[in-house]
Simulated assay, not measured.
Amino acid sequence: MNEGARDAEFGPLWHALEALTDPEIPVITLREMGILRDLRRGADGTVEVVITPTYSGCPAMEQIADDIAATLAREGVSGRVLTQLAPAWTTDWMTEEGREKLRAYGIAPPQCGSMAADEAVLRFAPARPAEPVPCPLCGSTNTTETSHFGSTACKALFRCLDCMEPFDYFKRI
């Protein structure tokens, strides 16, 4: 299906789905997180919403699937939610708008750049961020990791050594 026809068919539904927020970080949408991957028709003609978890054990995925199913029902659409594990989610899929929302919420966004076209899907990230993690509250880079696991497994706990406030850092995945 060409993109124009697809937009005509799914435009209102995309709009409704794009309003859904992450259950663990309610200031950022599933689209901004890169979790909401595709909206398409399955081989049987049923609408399929494709999502990819931030990591395979993410406890929010059941709630996300329920929220999507409720949105489909509210829009009068019969459909299903498909969880797609490959390619694996990466913080590179987060939008710039989403990163700014994380920062404003008090979570340091992941440090990452776009993947090169020839980069393999499997990557081994360093245990610690390569660059200093700026404090989302005061902007200082005089920060330290206090725990490799923060409020969720995809975040680490940091402390700013200038303003002395703790904050989450969304790990690069």
Rank of each mutant, 00 (worst) to 15 (best):
G4V: 01
A5G: 11
R6A: 13
R6W: 04
G11P: 04
L17I: 06
E18R: 14
L20C: 04
D22T: 05
D22E: 12
R31K: 06
M33H: 08
G34T: 01
I35W: 07
G45Y: 06
T46D: 15
V47C: 14
V49Y: 07
V50A: 04
I51L: 13
P53H: 02
Y55H: 15
S56D: 11
G57D: 03
Q63E: 11
A65K: 07
D67A: 11
D67Y: 09
A69C: 02
L72H: 01
A73G: 04
A73E: 15
R74Q: 00
E75H: 12
G76W: 15
G76H: 05
L82I: 02
L85E: 15
L85K: 08
L85H: 09
P87H: 06
P87D: 03
A88S: 14
W89Q: 13
W89T: 10
T91M: 11
T91F: 08
D92Q: 02
E97S: 10
A104D: 09
Y105D: 10
P109D: 12
S114F: 08
D118W: 01
D118V: 15
L122E: 11
R123S: 05
R128H: 10
P129V: 06
A130W: 05
V133P: 06
P134S: 14
L137N: 02
S140R: 07
N142E: 00
T143R: 03
E145P: 02
E145R: 12
E145I: 06
H148C: 12
H148I: 15
G150D: 08
G150Q: 09
T152Q: 08
A153P: 05
C154A: 00
K155T: 01
L157W: 03
L157Y: 03
C160A: 08
C160F: 10
L161W: 01
C163P: 05
P166T: 13
F167P: 12
F170V: 01
K171Y: 00
